[in-house]
Amino acid sequence: MSATLQFSLEALSQTDWGLLLDLLAHFAGLSVMSVGGFISVVPEMQRYLVVEQGLINQSQLAASIAIGQAAPGPNVQLVAVIGWQIAGPLGAAITLLGAVAPSATIALWANRIGMRHNQSAFIETLRAGLAPLTVGLMGSAGWVVGSTEAAHWPLLLVVPLAFFLSWRKTLSPLVIVLCAGGYGALAGWQGWL
């Protein structure tokens, strides 16, 4: 098991500009595709960073997502955690910039167009056509993350439990995530994993 985040300071001493440029391009591409939030491009991120390039492993990706979800602020900050592990603080700045700048520019531009043409047929079509795609993207993101621990049932159990508690609105997302953390700590301590 290698669920480690890697924060080596060696990355600081030699700046790999080629790598940084690749990261910027990749995350900018993800940004433009991230309809429904950055979580919907997790499968694509996994395909590129983990499977194709081998820059991080599956556990690092899952841990980064967990930190992005557990820490305060938008979940998109998970990309800064990933960037830092690949190329240090500069990597974090690059991945965050890449992930946010393109979609932010689009939002600003769309906001001004939307204010001008309130209810055009084109914008209504776009809205109606994109909604089901967003649902499919998010469902697949949840599935990819949730199946990371398919081999460890004490952890896998948390997925349907969190789903149910959130669905029934029994507990707030923060309480659910914190309870899961407590349970996972106990499970780790007891050696169930």
């Binding site: 985040l5 841990a63 967990a66 979800q69 948390v158 789903f163 149910f164 499970a187």
Partner: peptide
């Protein structure tokens, strides 16, 4: 993230983070 990288070898911390990731997956699905 730094705290996690320091304590990454601890079964307690990795257990907590891994379970939190699973909770996050459940929240996304809901």
């Amino acid at each position: 993230a730094f705290l996690y990288s320091t304590w990454a070898d601890s079964a307690v911390v990795t257990g907590a983070l891994r379970a939190m990731a699973m909770a996050a997956a459940g929240l996304i699905l809901a």
